[in-house]
């Protein structure tokens, strides 16, 4: 995740044409980066059954899973511009807040690359790109409600693939995973100059 926040833009999409709208979408939708590549690698290896990607952004990870595994993938995002981009990639897109509009036991695989950068509350940008990057003061403000609810939407033998950055606090996330009743196993891990990224596979403990 390259969180310099410069790509935010005002995003006041008044363009009528598809091209203009797509330009606006690109400016306000998180585009694939190292973290996306790592989540896709893990998800292609581990996914089974009916798949949900929460916070799908551009839809790139969801598309990879659908193409390389031939699975049905639903992608959600809070950001309607992101949902539109995901749909253009052929992903079944839904505008949603985390897992709130999904039924109990609906998915066999749930993937999430959360907004995870710890952000000073005085320094928030309050636009779509901030929503895509910022995990609040702790970096875990989206991970907490996600873990608290994912067990409901996950089928009994389901797996959760969660991307965790060292910037977010690896041990703190493991504690939350434990509280939610899951056991965590690292699937892929990669170190970068400022952070180590790990994709954890969570299964019911």
């Amino acid at each position: 995740m390259s969180g310099d926040g410069s790509g935010g833009g005002g995003g006041n999409g008044n363009g009528d044409g598809l091209a203009a709208r797509r330009g606006v979408d690109d400016a306000v939708v998180y585009q694939p980066a190292e973290d996306s590549g790592l989540l896709a690698e893990a998800a292609v290896a581990e996914a089974h059954g009916c798949v949900l990607e929460v916070g799908t952004g551009s839809g790139w990870v969801a598309e990879r899973i659908a193409e390389e595994r031939g699975l049905d993938v639903v992608g959600t995002d809070l950001n309607p511009h992101a949902a539109r981009q995901a749909r253009e990639r052929g992903v079944e897109a839904v505008v949603a807040d985390l897992l709130s509009p999904f039924r109990a036991d609906a998915f066999d695989t749930v993937c999430f690359n959360p907004p995870y950068l710890p952000t000073d509350p005085d320094n928030e940008w309050d636009d779509w790109m901030e929503h895509a990057l910022s995990g609040g003061e702790s970096g875990r403000e989206l991970i907490e409600p996600f873990l608290a609810d994912v067990g409901r939407a996950l089928a009994p033998d389901g797996v959760v693939l969660l991307l965790v950055s060292s910037l977010t606090g690896y041990d703190e996330v493991l504690d939350l995973v434990d509280e939610a009743g899951f056991a965590a196993e690292p699937v892929v891990e990669e170190s970068f100059p400022f952070e180590t990224l790990t994709v954890l596979a969570l299964r019911r403990a």
Partner: peptide, 9 residues
């Protein structure tokens, strides 16, 4: 709308 359900509260 445009094929996308908006299921936000």
């Amino acid at each position: 709308e445009d094929g996308i359900p908006n299921l936000l509260p």
